[in-house]
Amino acid sequence: MTNPVQPDEWLKRLEARSRAKQETFMDGIAAKLGRERVRTRPKHPFRGAPDFWKEFQLPIEDRIRQFTANFEAAGGHVVRVKNRAEASTFIVDKASEMSAGSILINDEVELSTLNLASSLPDAIVRSWNEDQDENWRAVASRSDIGIVMADYAAAYTGSLVVTSSPAKGRSVSLLPTVLMAIVPVDRMVTRLGEILVRFDEAGREQLPAGIHFISGPSRSADIENDLTIGVHGPGIVFAILVDDDSDA
């Protein structure tokens, strides 16, 4: 396909067309609703969950119990450890048990202090985006295990949350066969809404490109309602709850 128009020029032309169309589109909506265009923010009296729900808070031990029950019911695994050293031991043991040949970790301080490369001399351990010229999506797709820090977790739905940044790939929690997520317990809240409201408070400009809630292994029931695990994303998912995530 030959393309005589420069990409930037083409996109500019598209944008001009879109902006013109946007006006007629919105005018059309207002006309059908039988009123003038609404140009100031309307009062939204029903924002968010019902009020009784916003009060709902569980103590930390109940949160951990509920998260564990929900995550396991969805087919995930949960382990609880005292500190980062125990987390490291758990990961090393599991990786050896599964004979993992390649491990991809997000480029985060907490993860680099696990010292996985020295503890697993037979595996290739790489950090996301450590080399700008690498095709990191392909690396992630070839990796046996992806390891991430969870930004948040919600007990009521059994979900952990990962967000993207230059150091934190969306692919790391998605493309490897096994996902291990470290969840410092002080990042665990009761309800989804406690996490979601932070994105409202942060505002558009502060949001990362990808925010992902993960509630277990990838699954499908599309063949005769027969549950299949790991159809596209990781089929084995560990949430490693860490009581004390300090460096010491």
Binding site: N70, Y156, S159, P208, G210, I211, S215, S218
Partner: peptide
């Protein structure tokens, strides 16, 4: 209680 993945995408990659 929630689908396995719920993703919020805000624009193309940074």
């Amino acid at each position: 209680k929630l689908t396995v993945y719920m993703s919020g995408i805000t624009g193309p990659r940074r």
